[in-house]
């Protein structure tokens, strides 16, 4: 991929929390390089603590990496770039004291959109996620799924080329996240945004992504990149297709050892509880 094609270029990014030798020292990311193409939905998947969310926040300019650099649309990332990048967080990052509409309008105010344009753009964003009827609701009055739709609407209203999503559906139940995934795929096919999507869910990654980057256990680095060759918008029937399952199994194969490594502290449940022991003792 040439520099012109790449929407995001990640070059040798490493990040550590705390200083070497400190108790809290954690090497979260190690020598990670990745090019993300314009208009692609790129999933980052890996075991807990592998640094995929850290990478996302490095791309978004919210975390300064210890070493390495990121360029977005040819510009080096040195801090938040609200005109290029919008963010959707795992938990609801809506301001609970503002209504849904106010939240969206406020985002545009932060970004610097002229006042006259804000309301109109907010309406369009709400329509895009199907929340027109809930504009005047407070986040606390919405379900988790609706809150994440509202957060997505806020990100869409900023009209950036790039959308970073940090496990946006992570706190939702299986059915809700499936439906939201379908909606996101439809939205994507219309908007041609570049999306980087962090997830824990194998199914979600295969269903949504054009490419999936699989991370190793901590210190995280990209182990392999898998392409999902299936046009957007993806139909629910894709989930039952043979290709879907083959890719999902491939991902699971890649991740399995890494997940074991990341939870090595926990002893495996190898020995089955033996409730005949007592009787056997009696016999002996």
């Amino acid at each position: 991929m040439t520099a012109a094609e790449a929407a995001i270029r990640i070059c040798d990014v490493s990040h550590q929390f705390g200083e070497i030798g400190q108790a809290r020292h954690v090497q979260a990311l190690k020598d990670t390089s990745l090019d993300i193409a314009r208009g692609e939905l790129h999933c980052l998947i890996g075991p807990s603590g592998c640094g995929k969310s850290t990478l996302l926040s490095v791309i978004g300019g919210l975390t300064k990496p210890t070493t390495g650099s990121v360029t977005v649309s040819g510009k080096p990332v040195r801090g938040p770039m609200p005109h290029d990048i919008a963010y959707v967080f795992q938990e609801s990052a809506l301001f609970p004291w503002n209504t849904v509409l106010e939240n969206i309008v406020l985002g545009m105010k932060f970004q610097g959109v002229p006042k006259a344009k804000r309301r109109d753009r907010a309406r369009r964003a709400l329509e895009a996620v199907g929340l027109e009827a809930f504009a005047q609701h407070f986040p606390g009055q919405l379900s988790g799924g609706m809150r994440q739709r509202a957060a997505l609407a806020r990100a869409l209203s900023l009209e950036t080329d790039i959308l970073l999503m940090d496990e946006p559906f992570g706190a939702l139940d299986e059915q809700t996240r499936m439906v939201l995934g379908e909606d996101l795929s439809v939205l994507l096919s219309r908007s041609h945004k570049t999306i980087v999507f962090v997830t824990h869910s194998l199914g979600e990654a295969v269903f949504l992504a054009d490419r999936v980057a699989v991370f190793s256990a901590r210190p995280g680095t990209i182990k392999q990149i898998i392409a999902v060759d299936e046009p957007h918008p993806r139909k629910p029937s894709f989930m039952t297709a043979l290709k879907f399952h083959a890719l999902r199994d491939q991902l699971y194969g890649l991740l399995h050892d890494e997940i074991r490594k990341s939870i090595a502290e926990t002893a495996p449940l190898r020995r089955r509880y033996d409730d005949t022991a007592e009787k056997n003792e009696g016999v002996a």
Binding site: L62, P80, H83, I85, Y87, F95, F110
Partner: peptide, 20 residues
């Protein structure tokens, strides 16, 4: 996360103080 998200949308220090 509320501060972070305001920052990601380009909020200034004063805006974070006033709106968040």
């Amino acid at each position: 996360v509320l501060r972070t998200s305001a920052r990601s949308m380009g909020a200034s220090r004063a805006q974070i103080l006033y709106h968040v």
